[in-house]
């Protein structure tokens, strides 16, 4: 087992994990167990409650019920009737697969305080866990009506919509996300893919280009550009002109073919550099050649 336990570094590690929101549950549980069993909990001051919560959630993750109960007991003793602790209790119920009981608990909290974000989110999570995506979507849209700047929820909603192949709605969610965080290329990428899926090639190409602009040599985006340009190059002329006139496309054929060539060139350069095995590079080149 652990020979020496560094209290200070453990506390900083936990603090950093809490701040970044990383879910390294096994690490948190190891550190937390040491902290609690070696009696360092008293030293933490006001931070101890946040640490208990952190350890509790991590313990649920790992199914370490003993530790989870201990944490919850401490919290419950200190903060009786606290909605935040109630949510933790709900999570415990969720972990024990008592979803209905958890749902009832959350609804109970919301009855007192219908703006309790954590409760709202947990409720949505329970819907998802129960497979009731419809209710989840409904709850999420209502939630986002009020808390429209919650990007994770927008992302979650778009994922739910995609489950039902509702590309337009999912696209709308991503548009909101792009408005909230215009520098995040993942949202652009996801949006470009949704557009491609819903066959809006020119818009998709534009978004892929945006992704490459924000994140140089993004392979997925380069592939997207290759796919889009290939599709556009293979279309009949009329289709293109009509398409370009209707969508007010900035592209002409020359640009498209140049983009195509550029994407191929960048991809081959990237893969030739990586050299993870000669075969994969060759496969890519083959795939690229097939496309065109």
């Amino acid at each position: 087992m652990m020979v020496s336990f560094d209290y200070k570094s453990a506390v900083t590690t936990l603090h950093e994990l809490r701040k970044s929101g990383e879910r390294k549950s096994d690490l948190v549980v190891t550190l937390g167990e040491n902290l609690i069993h070696q009696g360092y909990a008293g030293k933490l001051g006001d931070e101890v409650w946040a640490v208990y919560e952190q350890i509790f959630i991590a313990a649920l993750d790992l199914g370490n019920d003993q530790l989870a109960i201990k944490c919850l007991e401490n919290l419950d003793k200190r903060f009786p009737e606290s909605p935040r602790v109630k949510i933790l209790k709900g999570m415990k119920l969720e972990a024990e697969d008592k979803l209905d009981a958890a749902l009832a608990l959350y609804e109970d909290i919301l009855k007192d305080d219908d703006a309790n974000i954590a409760a709202i989110k947990r409720r949505i999570a329970v819907f998802k866990a129960k497979g009731q995506d419809q209710q989840a979507i409904e709850a999420l849209t209502r939630y986002l009506d009020a808390f429209y700047s919650d990007s994770e929820s927008w992302l979650e909603l778009s994922a739910l919509y995609l489950n039902f192949h509702l590309y337009q709605q999912a696209g709308f969610c991503l548009e909101e996300l792009i408005l909230l965080q215009p520098q995040n290329h993942f949202y652009h990428l996801k949006y470009a893919e949704i557009l491609y899926t819903s066959d809006n090639i020119t818009m998709s190409l534009k978004e892929f280009c945006r992704v490459v602009e924000l994140c140089e040599d993004n392979v997925r985006a380069l592939c997207g550009i290759k796919l889009c340009t290939s599709r556009l190059l293979n279309l009949p002329i009329s289709a293109i002109t009509s398409s370009s006139s209707s969508t007010n496309s900035p592209f002409d054929m020359k640009t498209i073919s140049d983009l195509n060539a550029l994407a191929v060139e960048r991809l081959s350069t990237i893969y030739s550099k990586k050299r993870r095995g000669g075969s994969s590079a060759n496969e890519i080149t083959d795939w690229l050649n097939n496309l065109s």
Partner: peptide, 11 residues
Amino acid sequence: VRRKKVNARWY
């Protein structure tokens, strides 16, 4: 004040 602050975070 400290107690109040901690409580505010939990209630």
